[in-house]
Design a protein around this nucleic acid. Structure first.
Length: 800
RNA sequence: GCUCCUGUGGUGGAAUUGGCAGACACGUUGGAUUUAGGAUCCAAUACCGCAAGGUGUGCAGGUUCAAGUCCUGUCAGGAGCACCA
């Protein structure tokens, strides 16, 4: 059959759509399967082939599952709020709504041309009222639960764009939009108290099936550490200065303390400070430093001694000085540390610069050359002396501290609370009203959605205010509690908001009574398999797990972990081996590929080009191999009925069914396709094929090249749609060759291969091998001291 | 600095529990077909060597009958976190 993709692809796409072939059916009797891919941000540039690869993995899984008899939910949508659209709007004067609709239209047509089996009846768009209404609703639930708070914080601010930037948008200390230097600015911002869920987020990882590196990254991001809080006494005031440490076993080696420049203790005891001016100056200097400077100058320690306050070591009773330094941060632990220069590199560097004492308390290092962080015998430490195990010393010290009431075991997390707002227009308005009498008042649930007002000008205001702040009709409002005049919050939510719960909305996308019906949630959740990019493993995934766990605690979802399984695909690089980007001009548009080669070739190629999880450069000539492959499959139809049925072909097909079936489950699409190519070569060698055998091959290929498969399925009179035909089963007996090739080694070196019956016993095998003319010369005049026989694999003679 | 991942032909990449390194594909070379180009088909293609044979999975060691795979050290590249007390 001639392979004319330009005819058959639109034909079958139309039929699938008309028949609703890929609709997921709520409450269906078949077992359910929820496959989820990360929904795209509809940028103006359109999709590139990287998107296609990202979706092709679970596309194959979904199609296979349907053929295996599952009720599959494989949805798609658009994560459409965000900066690029807004910046484009500022530049062109077009409204973000118009831009977004246009982009979504383009993405949709691109996705449809590739023939993905998404359930298009469940498409969602995070910027639609019907959607963001529920994003706001969940936010209010969190507000009610005390998970939302406001605090003053240093934010990244671009003085040129007059915009507050997220960390992601200001990498390297440069503004992502105009590339000028970002400065730190103090601002009141909204936070979600994600740290309250730190332990749950960590524990939950134990029962989910994520790739090991995905789990590892989340564990690192949460960053749990176990240690102790220890109270030092301030000599002049008698108050306690609490520190956090993971090494309380080194308490006797503490020779000074360091507190963050912003530590409240300074303000509180200002009257006692003899060098308040110097301390203030240092604090101000630190505030001016950008995030970039602070992290780049890590080696060079700076600080100022606090004159007028002295601390007392709670175990040794020694008086020690206190310093302020920016290497101690208010945001972690208690904002104060005990410094043990003999056993901590940062403390050592600081002590050297400021001339503080260095007392070793663990044997093993040399305080002249640097800090010793290893294990060893405890010295100079009173009751701890002589212990050699760090664990024991820590336990003994902790017991002592607790008995004396000056310390307590504790844990800390690196993860910080989630700064949850942007001073931008194109985002979900935060549904809170500021009332001079009642304070922060939530917008009543029945008033949701709090709509984004139509504005003409999206430029942010002076001092990093949201464009919404300029819309008087939006800002001016009544307090729902007291009815008095109030002001509306004008910040919007960050891009991560809408994507934190989108997988729930697919389950019931048109519900206007709830974010989703609870019975439907019960039926579909959890997501059985979630695939996406490594770049979303920390932020998006942690955020959405956090929202989900919150909803679970509120009794609104039936399970505490949203994703049962998580995998990740690798990037597609440009033909030059560089990351695809518009500025480098190495972006490949899937539409161009579909035009020239067809969707089936594109789909096959993105999965064949390499290991699914690794990055691989785009190589157009390699794609020709995939085209040839599909053409050769198509040409098989001319072989059907020719010659007499061959057992060899049967074995080849059944072996391939077995390999393809298991490779797909492991995301090893490249070897699955390679196996089909090998099978094809074997069939052409045999020169014969039955119609039944062809039917198996067509169905096996269907998840990869569904259009061609449908066409061939129809040509052999297959029942119904190939996409919904049963997945081919293999017969274990038929996967075994009657004769196998076994390698013969002498002293571990390959000398020959021999053909043996599959069920050959050891003796026969060894005898056959010994007689092989290629082996004989190597055994001649030698004594065989050992004979190794690995059935079906190898024979090795050890000779002397 | 910490955590994790990856180093295999000219290229992308294969290789269950340690068991024939280089599957499959691209590219290249030769041949067939063709007016020509293209397409297609056949053959060859890790390296050295005419051959017998030898050498080969970043590098150096080790364990083993047998190592791409396990162990120790080391180098290179990538990703994430980053003064985390």
């Amino acid at each position: 059959m001639k392979y004319d993709f330009s005819k058959i692809e639109p034909k079958w796409q139309k039929i699938w759509e008309e028949k609703g072939a890929f609709r997921a059916v709520d409450f269906d009797k078949r077992p359910k399967y929820y496959a989820l891919v990360e929904f795209p941000y509809p940028s103006g540039a359109g999709m590139h082939v990287g998107h296609i690869k990202a979706y092709s993995g679970l596309e194959v899984i979904s199609r296979k599952r349907r053929m295996q008899g599952y009720n599959v939910l494989f949805p798609i949508g658009f994560d459409a709020y965000g900066l690029p659209t807004e910046n484009y709007a500022i530049k062109t004067g077009m409204h973000p709504r118009v831009v977004t609709d246009k982009n979504i239209e383009k993405f949709t047509s691109q996705l449809k041309r590739v023939g993905f089996s998404f359930d298009w009846s469940r498409v969602i768009d995070t910027t639609e009222e019907g959607y963001y209404r529920w994003t706001q609703w969940i936010f209010l639930k969190m507000f009610e639960a005390g998970l939302v708070f406001r605090d003053n914080a240093l934010v990244n601010y671009c003085p040129h764009c007059k915009v507050v930037l997220s960390n992601e948008d200001s990498q390297g200390g440069k503004c992502d939009i105009c590339h000028s230097d970002v400065v730190q600015k103090s601002k009141t911002v909204w936070y979600l108290r994600i740290t309250k869920y730190a332990e749950k987020l960590l524990e939950g990882l134990e029962k989910v099936d994520y790739l090991p590196n995905v789990k590892q990254q989340q564990v690192n991001w949460i960053g749990k550490s176990t240690g102790a809080f220890v109270d030092f006494t301030i000599k002049e005031t008698g108050e306690k200065l609490r520190i956090y440490t993971t090494r309380c076993d080194t308490l006797f080696g503490v020779t000074f303390m360091v507190i963050a420049p912003e530590h409240p203790m300074l303000e509180k005891n200002r009257a006692l400070l003899r060098n308040a001016d110097a301390l203030d100056a240092y604090k101000e200097e630190c505030a001016k430093k950008t995030e970039f400077e602070r992290t780049q100058l890590v080696k060079d320690k700076t600080g100022v001694k606090v004159e007028g306050l002295t601390a007392i070591n709670p175990v040794s009773g020694k008086e020690i000085p206190i310093f302020i330094s920016d290497y101690v941060m208010m945001g972690y632990g208690t904002g104060a540390i005990m410094a043990v220069p003999a056993h901590d590199e940062r403390d050592y560097a600081f002590a050297k610069k400021f001339g503080a004492d260095i007392i070793p308390v663990i044997k093993g290092g040399d305080i002249e050359t640097g800090a010793y962080t290893g294990d060893g015998k405890v010295i100079n430490s009173g009751f701890l002396n002589g212990l050699t195990n760090k664990k024991d010393s820590i336990a003994k010290m902790l017991a002592y501290l607790e008995e004396k009431g000056v310390g307590v075991a504790g844990v800390q997390y690196k993860m910080k609370d989630w700064a949850f707002n942007r001073q931008r227009y194109w985002g979900e308005p935060i549904p809170i009203v500021h009332c001079p009498k009642c304070g922060m008042v939530p917008v009543p649930y029945e008033d949701l959605p709090l709509r984004l007002p139509k504005v003409e000008n999206f430029e942010p205001g002076e001092g990093g205010e949201s464009p919404l702040a300029k819309i008087e009709s939006f800002v001016k409002c009544k307090c729902s509690k007291c009815g008095g005049d109030a002001k509306r919050e004008t910040d919007t939510m960050p891009q991560w908001a809408g994507s934190s719960w989108y997988f729930l909305r697919y389950i019931d996308p048109n519900n206007d009574k709830a974010f989703a019906d609870s019975d439907k949630l019960k039926y579909w959740l959890p997501v059985d398999w979630y695939n996406g990019g490594m770049e979303h493993v920390t932020r998006h995934m942690i955020y959405s797990r956090f929202w989900h766990k919150f909803l679970f605690d509120e009794g609104l979802v039936p399970c505490d972990e949203p994703y049962a399984k998580r995998t990740a695909q690798g990037l597609i690089l440009g033909p030059d081996g560089e990351k695809m980007s518009k500025s480098k001009g190495n972006v490949v548009d899937p539409n161009d590929v579909v035009d020239e080669y067809g969707a089936d070739v594109l789909r096959t190629y993105v999965l064949f080009m390499g290991d699914y999880a690794s990055a691989a450069p785009w190589n157009e000539s390699s794609m020709k191999g995939c085209k040839r492959f599909l053409e050769r499959v198509s040409d098989l139809s001319e072989l059907v009925g020719k010659g007499s049925p061959s057992d060899k072909v049967d074995v080849s097909i059944h072996k391939t069914i077995k390999k393809v079936s298991s490779d797909i489950e492991d995301l090893k699409f490249n070897t699955a396709i390679a196996a089909m190519m090998t099978m094809l070569n074997e069939i052409y060698d045999a020169g014969t094929l039955t119609k039944d055998q062809f039917g198996l091959i067509i169905r096996l290929l269907c998840p990869f090249a569904p259009h061609l498969s449908e066409e061939l399925w129809q040509s052999i009179g297959g029942n119904g749609l190939c996409s919904l035909a049963p997945w081919p089963e293999y017969d274990e007996e038929k996967t075994k060759d009657s004769e196998i090739e076994v390698a013969v080694q002498v002293l571990g070196k390959l000398r020959a291969t021999v053909m043996l019956p599959a069920d050959c016993d050891k003796e026969t095998a060894l005898e056959t091998a010994k007689k092989d003319p290629r082996v004989v010369p190597f055994l001649d005049e030698k004594t065989i001291v050992k004979e190794i026989w690995v059935p079906g694999k190898i024979i090795n003679f050890v000779v002397k």
